[in-house]
Design a binder for these strands. Sequence first.
DNA 1: GTTAGGGTT
Length: 801
Amino acid sequence: MSNGNDRWSALKGDSQGSDGGRRYGGYSKQYNRKGYGSRQSSGSESRYNSWDRYQVKTEDGEVLRGSQGSSDRRYSNRVIETKPRWSRFSDNQKDRAARGDEPQVLRKDLDVGDGKGELNPFTGRSFSRNYYRLLELRKKLPIYNHRDEVLKIVGENKFVVLVGDTGSGKTTQVPQILSMKYGKENNKLIACTQPRRIAAVTVAQRVAEEMDVRLGDEVGYSIRYEDETSSRTILKYCTDGLLLRESVTDPLFSKYSMIIIDEAHERTISTDILMGMLKQVVFEREDFRLVVMSATLDAEKLQKYFNNAPLISIPGRMYPVEIKYLEEPVEDYLQATIEAISQIHKEEPAGDILVFLNGEDEISTAVKDLEESLGSVPGEGHPSGVHVLPLFSSLPSNAIQKVFEDPPKNKRKIVIATNVAETSITIDGIVYVVDPGFSKQKVYNPRNRVESLQVAPVSAASAVQRSGRAGRTRAGVTYRLYTEDAFEGLTAMTYPEILRSNLNSVVLQLRTLSMNPVEFDFLDPPPPETVMRALECLLYLGALDQTGQVTKFGKAMSVFPLDPELSRTLLAAPELGVAQEVLAIVAMVSAAPNCFVRPLNKAREADQAKRRFEAEESDHLTLLNVYTEYMIHNNSSQQWCWENFLNERALQSAAKAKEQLERLLEQQGYSTKSKRIGFDYYGQSIAIRKAIAQGNFMFSAVECKRATYLTTKDNVEVKLHPSSGVRTRPTWLIYNELVITTKAFIRTVTQVEGGWLLESSPNYFTPDHFTNDIVSYEIAKLTGERKKSRSAMNTNLRQAY
DNA sequence: GTTAGGGTT
């Protein structure tokens, strides 16, 4: 990769970066920060001011989500006091489990592997002292006294639903108990899925230690890029997405005697699809069992779905957490948050505070406000003031590390976090939780295929999970910045992801397994429109034929852990002689789409750094430039990334993704070498952009007026996102994503020729296919047809020409 | 002429 063509287009000098340090937005209000139930003070429409705004209606008018009644009936409209008044502790049933108030019966120890002097059946050696130390801790877990019940019910049933709250020990103990009995059955193993990589790894480490075996022997884990299992493994923790991928090569999951789906209440797409597939596997395989574990809410729905499966219910156990509600709803939840923190700091005993907000801008503002207002204000037990830390996932890892460290002496630690702190990152020592009750959620509109993020009320399950963060090391208090009535009105569970996502990849996978996505037995069936969209899209991509059967090409596409559009891009590359370049681009787009870091206080420097990589005809080529340079600076990558405002973790994962994709491409019999001979600079750029066009033709846009484009599929008028480096004002563009923020923008774009699009999918690009005259006209120009062109000209819309 | 939260193959 060093023949001088590695860098695309002229690198821009710094001279262009001198447009002054203008910052856009800063702290722009994307939405009104209204607390629950408060009324709009002005007459303007807000999407976020009351519960009944959150309803999502299906095609047939059914309300899928939102409050049962009008917010106006339940919430008062009077002026809210500035200082929140906490209602007295109320004994809410949904909270009881979180507090651990369930009565517990102490029973004598049973006989599963705890006899002293016994030999470890797996290693043949005596148990270590550490084993007995951990065993004492295990005995204190609520699940410990339910071991026979678990063994008995699982023994008698092929479907079992097990619910247990935080602290019940279900994630570590249930798979362990079951693997002692079923782990070697028919030489098959047990898998336990987790929604997150980090959980799969840490739980496996813990369980290996508890079973006194080496990680990777009897107990292991498997996540993308990392497989810590061996032929000895009887219990494997893995991510749900990874297990779902395995179905591509082994649809009956024949390696496993039992699969345990953990955290089913989180309802990830992978978990939902797995549950549907495994339900079928249970009917088809005599020797297979399914256990679904979930937090307590909504267990009935799971039982019903799994043919009235029996339920095992395990109480949670943790330190008690007192829940406080507001007596009246608040007008502005950010302000209320600051006030609540201030009150806690000044009046409540020593202890750290965890606060849940949404997004970097809210968090940064709150951190700044609090440092200014409370930084050195003495509080109860903390005479020197507060130490405030932000926490969100895109933060550099050294900054994340700080939330685990002790604050300066005599200061109270306050962590202002996004949802990462709800499940992924656990901070010990938190005594107070402040929960305004909102989170950002992905919303998918199948009609224009736009995914966007919106701030919406959390589910009751989330609220309970958040409050539980206060009771990890000692008794704590949670301040919910909404009324108890509002809590009662929360939807029980988070709205499942499968109902608000693009399903192209899922539908291809189901078709590859000869399953009918329209009839698939989903726990919550996605809107039929989304499934139809996916089928149509796969047809245009050549993955399915007219009868809906998977083509040979579609079979090859399904092998890659990518969106079908990207799989096709990748498969087009070898023939064009640019396999290496496209592998890197696809890896970047799928694993590091936001690799550019742009801190608000250094926006100008960051923009200048980015310009060094820019290709004027393609942001995809800009990503290739970044990747190539990153690989060159691999041995000093940390500093290099820092200097160039790049996210190192993102680039690392892109590098791993590229390796994996290259291996899969090779396995399919494609050459992964690039052909350099005969290419000049632009020849290569063209070949790469042709490959991008071949997969992404449905994400194409045509210029309709100056600096404005029209997407071909849905006629959305869009502008280039200001972060784009494309300056050539092409007629045709491919875009990677459409985002609607202050305007509709297309982001990560590439100039293409209309002719390439036509070659990519003649079926898709016919003038009649498009309802918009401008699009039809442009396509007619390409195809030579004239059918729609006259009307298009008559509309006099083509001002730009 | 900008702001995307948390996951995953």
